[in-house]
Design a binder for these strands. Structure first.
Lengths: 201, 201
DNA sequence: AGGCAACTTCACAGATCAGTGTACCAAGGA
DNA sequence: TCCTTGGTACACTGATCTGTGAAGTTGCCT
């Protein structure tokens, strides 16, 4: 039994691994409140007792679900960032490069946005994970824009964040074809516009 | 008793009105699955029997909630469209003019996006309302862009939709200041860019 | 006077919810 | 050999969930 009931994602027992995988799938497909712990345990081939021994509570499992999802997404971005090197523009646009891949498995919307709508409780630990994820992305835009020489990055960073999040929403609800590519192109235009208009001032 | 159990928003009895108002508030604040019909009835000062007599089921009430929200939002846009006249640019940007007002009451995100994440059931009538709302907005951008002389409006329409939806998400999760204004400015830039680059081609 | 619409009261059904207690078992390391 | 870890089996609690049935009340319209 782990010392803390909040599971460490790096050292999951085989049962815990299966529970988290099953829960991730069901939470994403059906919503967090719509899925019961009995269902998760049954579909994981595990008893409810094991679930509670590993994750402490349903809220603990929800938080682990969000943390693992966050980690996977960030590792995708960081891999792209590694390829991008020191060039500022590719660094700024890295999240938009990853977006088509991410959207492939996000046909039911962004797991974070969906969860945020369900977790009304202001002090639910899962909310922090979500806010942190979006804040991290906003920080990434702000930092990389500054590195590119944009002196007032704030409004542009917010615009890029909006484009990024909106593309996921637009794609999942209206099935708009090429939403990721369109968002990528718009992001590039806005950044280039900011660079040139700043240079010619 | 209305002939159809799916309520007509224009002819609600006093009790039904109170039920819908209470349900709208609770659904939005806490999430659809997190609120029970007992709570809604109690807080409306009405019995559960009345709720079921007026709306048929919880799903019926959810659908009425989404339809009334959709109607109010659309009327805001159409009012702005009336002020805009025949000028193409203000017509395109009308949704972004309304956005700051809409965001004032959307501190917990977009009710449609939130509901879409909770309504996993593919044939839930509420899903149609949500898809229709976003599709309507996409259509508005496409149509008004065409009227402005943009020959290939599709990618730009998707970009504007993404900006619009993303601004709501960014504002509600990261509390990004001026998200609506930033999205408005970005939308204007993208449209103007499309108009000039097309003109000089 | 009659009828209908809106609504109340209240008990009840059947399912599902998160979470717990107790006892047991198998494998691996000290 | 003993202890720990990871798990099983299963019954159970108490709350909450959506939804129904039957009978009664109030007030307006004709």
């Amino acid at each position: 039994m782990p010392a803390t009931p909040t599971a460490d994602l790096d050292s999951l027992t085989p049962g815990a691994r299966r529970i988290l995988d099953t829960a991730s799938r069901l939470f994403y497909e059906q919503g967090i409140h719509a899925v019961g712990v009995d269902t998760i345990a049954a579909e994981s081939g595990v008893t409810k007792r094991t679930l509670y021994d590993r994750f402490g509570s349903k809220d603990g499992l929800v938080t682990a679900y969000l943390r693992s999802r966050d980690r996977r997404w960030r590792s995708m971005i960081e891999a792209r960032l590694g390829e991008a090197g020191a060039d500022p523009l590719p660094r700024i646009l890295a999240p938009f490069d990853v977006l088509p891949l991410w959207l492939d498995e996000c046909t039911r919307g962004c797991s974070f946005i969906n969860a945020f709508g369900e977790l009304h409780d202001g002090d639910h630990p899962g909310r922090d994970v979500i806010v942190e994820e979006k804040t991290w992305l906003l920080d990434h835009f702000r930092t990389s824009l500054t590195q590119a020489g944009i002196v007032e990055p704030e409004p542009l960073a917010v615009q890029l964040l909006s484009l990024h999040e909106g593309a996921i929403v637009a794609y999942s609800i209206t099935s708009a074809a090429g939403a990721a590519e369109a968002a990528h192109a718009a992001a590039r235009s806005l950044v280039e516009l900011a660079l040139t208009s700043q240079g010619t001032r």
